[in-house]
Nucleic acid binder design. Sequence first.
DNA 1: CTGGGACGCT
DNA 2: AGCGTCC
Length: 691
Amino acid sequence: MDIDDEDDDWNVSAESSDIFVMGSSSSDPVSKAPSSSRVILHFDLDCFYAQVEMIRNPALRNKPLGIQQKYIIVTCNYVARDQGLTKLMSVTDALEKCPQLVLVKGEDLTHYREMSYKVTELLMSYCPLVERLGFDENFLDVTEMVDTKVKQAPSTDLTFSGHIYNEDSFATNASDHPRLAMGSLIAAELREAIKSNLGLTSCAGVATNKLLAKLVSGTFKPNQQTTLLPESTADIMASLSGLRRVPGIGHRTGQRLKALGLHTVRDLQCFPPAELAKEFGAASAQRLQNLAQGIDESPVTPAGPPQSLSDEDSFKKISSTTEVLKKVEELLTSLMERMQKDGRQPATFRLTIRRFSATNRYFSRESRQCPIPNHIGQKITTGSCDALAQLLSMAMKLFQKMIDTSTPFHLTLINVCFSNLQSKSDGKGSITSFFTQRSPKKVISVSQQQENLSVKGSSICTGSPEDCTTFANNTLDMRISQSTSPIPEWTQVPAVSNERHRPSPPLEPDLSHLPPDVDPDVFKHLPESIQQELLSSFQAGEHGDRQGTSSQSVTAIYCNQKQTSQLTEPPLQQSNMGANSAGSGNGDDFVKETTDQTFFSAHRERLSMCAEQPEGNSRASGTECPSNVDPMVFSELPPELQQELLSEWRQQKPVLKIPSKKLGRTASTKDKKAASKACQANNLLNYFKSN
DNA sequence: CTGGGACGCT
DNA sequence: AGCGTCC
């Protein structure tokens, strides 16, 4: 009953501030002047990953297509859905239902992320109040725009675009809901803009809050839109099959509600608030019952740049320090590149793991984080080459806080994350500093789109210069004018950081006791305990103690050229046509050398040069360092870890001489995958080759 | 044979 | 730091 206490963050932001509505002063704390309701749009891209892949390879358009991450089809196109495929279906089941299914790997999110931000950016060019939800959904608060347009247009001209929820059950007249009608026209315009500019179809929902807009957007799919009139609110809430279908009620909350005997939306609506509060607390209880009634006052929070960047991988089993080191380096390499493109400087680093647990399927993750010293953070931003080794050292310290490496462990996931991101322009990272003027070009220039979207010579090419003009001059005239359009820094092509200073080469420590292919410069930066572990396990390995093949994948990645090429397939020959787009603009000598190599070997060379070491081959180096570990990385490691690495390296070395069939198969597969993944970070075009 | 993120709350 | 939520 007494739903409105004073917890009204109600008329925050755009709605009441400087609009003409009611002319009520926002400083008036008492007047609850029920200003006209908001108009919220929700956009949902159709089978987003699949659409991106079909743009990248139009030949996939008419085939059943599934996007595969590990063993799961995360999404599929509508050709595949016609054959009974659904989201989050196992690959096995999917192929059973649809043997002709074409699978594209989707574990690398680069292309999806880029396209996702293009969509958000496009929407923001019309209306600044855009909130992202995942990669394929956006909320817009178009209240202000709607009120402006409605004032201008004679209401008799107004008509709805798209569907109206429960349209048949009553006579609808646009003049009864001019603002929602206008919202539907804006939604249609924006969907068309997304289609012609980016080649993506989408659904949209139009309603008075985020919850309802999201719920209604999915009622007609794909490529359609629906408006929910306020009088249908109860209907759409009642139509939900269960409480889990209410956005905001997730797995865990759903379970707790079920434990209270609540299954349907109506159950929750009718449940005594006091009882509910005993379970969830007053605030959450209130929120839940509001949701059940379709009430959601949460504001559309403008999308900023991401507050963190992370990279993770899941796997069956990782149980050795060496594998951890290798995996973390792999993840960090990719993450640092993204961080560099972003331009901001991370102040916090976090390592997250997931332990294998037979009992608990809903495994929890554990993490440890630490501040990133400023000088290291700067190295990340400038792409300096020894940042990796130092971050790796930090990562292994954090790792040891969670895992006792002297006893067996079994990890199934590793995640690395940069957060606390500081803008370069001002250290405080204020929001305003994030929006800068862009080039005199269109917000999204057609040429730029074609550049980004036409891969393998096939452009979606639905956007023509006329399209842009059309948008700018569209009848609704919604688009923010070019000259004043604020474009977030994070959507811009990163400026080439013209750092011409090569970091001073680290001093060479006495590392004669190290495994042959571990980079001393890396090793010496690692926590001492890790160094010890590596060294000790190295020694253990020398005594002939061999323990399986845990380090094979490490070898596969690092021993690119000489050693392992006899055992595994030759390293992938990647033609890095446009290699090194970032950071190579000034023709630095040592960067130029990387143009025709796989990323890892290139990267390795850079590291080696920084350390002023002879080039890559493990044997060439005077210091012992496992051939499966970058020497510079190795040198930064703590002695413990160095010892363990040495040990494992020693153990696996004899194994390599006797290639098991497993090695022959898996290693080459992993090799390809790793090389491909590494390369694609350097050159997006390479991604296609592996498919 | 359950992915890879990102966010908010506590 | 952990949990929950969304996609």
